[in-house]
């Protein structure tokens, strides 16, 4: 029995090691390519670069006539901060109303949100593009912020799930002490909800960094207002890929570091959010 256990454990270690290599190798290779001295997307028959350089990173910040990486970074951060603040408030308000307040339109509104959420999100983006064009905000960062945060109420489920777990007795006690519903929301519920607020802030902050489809429809060819994802995608287009491939890798590494850090921080909140608190351990 014991030897059998040792054999299976060795096997498991072996498989895990192989899998870890498979999962880490592309990331390591991406980092390596970002330091490659030889330009071009194709390899000349060998994989390990013969020349190492920081040039790809400096190029991003100096060679800004065609691809203005620092500007895109700034755009993305501005959009991310604004949409993150607005979205978080929208989600908080919606989730709290649906979880804690009782009013006649509650059920119907929740059903409307459920149905709207089943339309492919991209479908409305096309219409929004025309709508925004008509009010003269086309290809602007404001338009992007409005779109990222406008529909935020539709994603209230995770936060509502969290609010539902806060005992109602707390609310009732505060109510008997003469608190208004607003005071209960601010002074009782919010302080208890830090994990789920962190989760919402981080996810809504990351969204503009990793979104391509919405930004590409709204920005079209306005290079100055590009976000990171759009810009990096452009670097790999046929006419640019030779000169910009290694710079793309450098840009990708730079953008991945903060996002990976944020993701690692919220890992636990993320899992709890998705599984809706069904994890007890």
């Amino acid at each position: 029995m014991k030897t059998r256990n040792i054999i299976t454990n060795t096997l498991v270690y072996f498989v895990l090691a192989v899998l870890s290599v498979i999962w880490l190798l592309p990331i390591a290779y991406l980092v390596m390519t970002s330091f490659r001295g030889e330009s071009g997307a194709w390899l000349d028959g060998y994989v390990i670069p013969k020349e190492w350089t920081f040039g790809n990173y400096t190029k991003l910040f100096t060679d800004t006539t065609l691809f203005n990486y620092p500007r895109w970074m700034l755009n993305t951060v501005v959009v991310a901060i604004c949409s993150c603040v607005i979205s978080t408030f929208f989600v908080l308000f919606t989730a709290y109303s649906f979880s804690r307040l009782r009013f006649r339109m509650r059920r119907p509104l929740m059903n409307v949100v459920l149905v709207l959420g089943m339309f492919p999100g991209f479908m409305s983006v096309i219409a929004i593009y025309h709508l925004i064009k008509l009010i003269g905000l086309e290809q602007s960062l404001i338009a992007l912020i409005l779109i990222y945060s406008g529909g935020a109420a539709l994603t209230y489920y995770i936060m509502k799930g969290f609010f539902d777990t806060i005992p109602r007795e707390l609310d009732e006690a505060a109510y008997l002490d003469g608190y208004t519903k607003w005071q209960i929301f601010i002074k009782i519920t919010l302080p208890l909800s830090r994990p789920v607020i962190t989760y919402t802030v981080l996810t809504t902050f990351i969204a503009p960094f990793v979104d391509f489809i919405i930004a590409s429809v709204i920005m079209k060819d306005n290079y100055n207002n590009f976000t990171i994802a759009l810009g990096l995608f452009r670097m790999l287009e046929r006419e640019n890929v030779f000169r910009w491939y290694t710079a793309f890798c450098a840009g990708a590494v730079l953008i991945s570091i903060p996002i990976a850090a944020l993701f690692l921080i919220m890992q636990k909140n993320y899992v709890e959010g998705i599984t809706g608190g069904s994890v007890k351990g």
């Binding site: 999962w23 990331i27 994802a229 995608f233 990708a252 953008i255 991945s256 993701f263 690692l264």
Partner: peptide, 8 residues
């Protein structure tokens, strides 16, 4: 591996 943005 998943902390790196998917599009990258």
């Amino acid at each position: 591996a998943i902390a790196v943005p998917g599009f990258v």
